[in-house]
Nucleic acid binder design. Structure first.
Length: 459
RNA sequence: GGCUAGGUGGCAGAGUGGUUAUGCAGCGGCCUGCAAAGCCGUCAACGCCGGUUCGAUUCCGACCCUAGCCUCCA
């Protein structure tokens, strides 16, 4: 395949070539588990899940998505609720995985947790001190940014400008404003680990460097995350890892997804517009959320609103409508390939809107033809495409029946449709239309065709 | 203030130096007992001002506007 990816560091799309022939390593910055995942957290999980699915077609992929389970926000939640840290984190790890699963996100090969890699972090910090890249001050260990020439190369900023624009108070123990914490002391109430610098806990950035090294090696192929992580998180990871590994390249391709807004406003707790995935999927199929997240290119901003959801739902109705009622043998389905144009779109830096356009084109062709073999072939192709994108994996009948219980049960609907059929046969259209109205009131719309009548939930 | 990305038809959203994106909505038609779904046709766009060019929405420059980052943040 000819995959092209937009690399943040080079600032442009470049052909993807793994370090080793057919083996690819990929690391995605996962959640900090102090709360349920919101829709903004879901975007990187979904878009990079698509990349994972694409890569697995041609490469032997090792994919790690970490869990940050030690952090000040987690500590704050612990103090607030009076519950121990691991009770909080294990609960939200489970919730995160359930929620992502509902969005069709496949589990990563490795899900490393920060608290299980303290020794690796300490070892890396010791190396950084020994190499002259870090220093100890007042029980803290800080990374000396001035020791790394290339600092700022990823986020395209230079230290002088950053200091000029800085509005941050500089901690007194720092040599320079942008030196960042590798290790910091803990108070007796807070979680801590023994270290050469006393009882303490790791800074935020070091965990990803240590875990990437342990599970994927010194140089990884793809490092991904949200755009907001470019600085400082990824810039700092990059500096640490290279300095700890004698300048060895850390990540060969840096991928960052764009931000999500809520009704054109920034999502924030203070505005009260944070939407949890957990709440969303109570009323909306996870697949609708997934398609909504894939309906804009991953590097573009995406606005989340009721219209976004409704649009995704209608798109799925159209796609499922096309494959509905096609009797597809399992072997034909298993052997099918996605259309080449669709793959080409995805391989062009995950151009999901283009890929979806191809899918709709196929749906139109499918709706047009009445040849049974053609219909089976096209349906198989659509489902294969859906499989790469993590869509269309539900039985169409189940899709249109809806997940939530409506006002009418399935057998009641069938009974009404039978009555209507009889009425139509005796050309009593008033009675037939009354039944149709009754169904419409219950949120059921019906579709007559030469083969019979089908129905769908439309509310 | 600095850095980065972007401003496309009613809405969402790709793309391109000259030719239909796509979805929803609208309009006309076909199909239907009437609808719905589907199909056909159709309307409609490239922030502003210059420049390069035979030709720019697409390249270059200025300007205006928007978002993100510069502090925890997907």
């Amino acid at each position: 395949m000819t995959l092209r990816l937009h690399d943040t560091k080079r600032g442009r799309k470049v052909p993807f070539e793994p370090l080793y022939d057919n083996k690819v390593t990929m690391y995605l910055c996962g959640p900090t588990v102090y709360n349920y995942a919101h829709i903004g957290n879901a975007r990187p999980a979904v878009v990079f899940d698509l990349l994972v699915r694409l890569l697995r077609r041609d490469y032997e992929l090792t994919f790690a998505r970490n869990i940050t389970d030690i952090d000040d926000k987690i500590n704050a939640a612990s103090v607030e609720t009076g519950k121990p840290i691991d009770e909080i984190t294990s609960r939200f790890i489970d919730a995160y995985n359930e929620d992502m699963s509902a969005l069709g996100v496949l589990p990563p090969d490795i899900e490393p947790r920060a608290t299980q890699h303290i020794a690796e972090m300490i070892a890396m910090i010791e190396t950084l001190i020994a190499n002259g890249n870090a220093y100890e001050a007042e029980s803290h260990v800080l990374f000396d940014v001035s020791s790394h020439d290339d600092y700022g190369a990823l986020s395209k900023r230079n230290l002088r400008e950053m200091i000029a624009g800085s509005r941050v108070e500089v901690a007194p123990y720092k040599k320079a404003a942008h030196d960042f914490v590798l290790w910091k002391p803990s108070t007796p109430e807070l979680p801590g680990w023994d270290s050469p610098w006393g009882r303490g806990r790791p800074g935020w950035h070091i965990e990803c460097s240590a875990m990437a090294k342990k599970h994927l090696g010194k140089t990884i192929d793809i490092h991904a995350g949200g755009q907001d992580l470019v600085f400082p998180h990824h810039e700092n990871e990059l500096a640490q890892s290279r300095c700890a590994h004698d300048g060895t390249e850390f990540a060969r391709y840096w991928l960052h997804n764009g931000f999500l807004s809520m009704d054109h406003e920034k999502m924030s707790k203070s505005l009260g517009n944070v939407v949890l995935v957990r709440d969303l999927i109570k009323t909306i199929p996870g697949e609708v959320v997934r398609l909504a997240l894939l309906s804009a290119h991953y590097r573009q901003p995406l606005d989340w609103s009721d219209a976004t959801i409704e649009s995704a739902r209608r798109k799925l109705d159209r796609l499922y409508g096309a494959v509905r009622g096609v009797d597809l043998p399992a072997d034909l389905r298993a052997a099918a390939e996605p259309p080449a144009a669709l793959l080409a779109a995805l391989e062009d830096d995950l151009n999901t809107p283009k890929a979806l356009a191809e899918l709709f084109g196929l749906a139109r062709d499918l709706n047009k033809t009445s040849d049974a073999d053609e219909r089976r072939r096209m349906t198989a192709s659509m489902l294969a495409a859906g499989s790469v994108m993590g869509l269309l994996q539900t039985d169409p009948e189940d899709w249109f029946a809806g997940h939530a219980e409506g006002k009418l049960a399935g057998d009641e609907i069938d009974a009404l449709l039978a009555k209507r059929k009889a009425a139509r046969k005796s050309r009593d259209f008033n009675a037939a239309d009354a039944i149709r109205d009754q169904l419409a009131d219950a949120g059921i719309s019906i579709e007559d065709s030469p083969e019979g009548t089908t129905w769908r939930r439309s509310d």
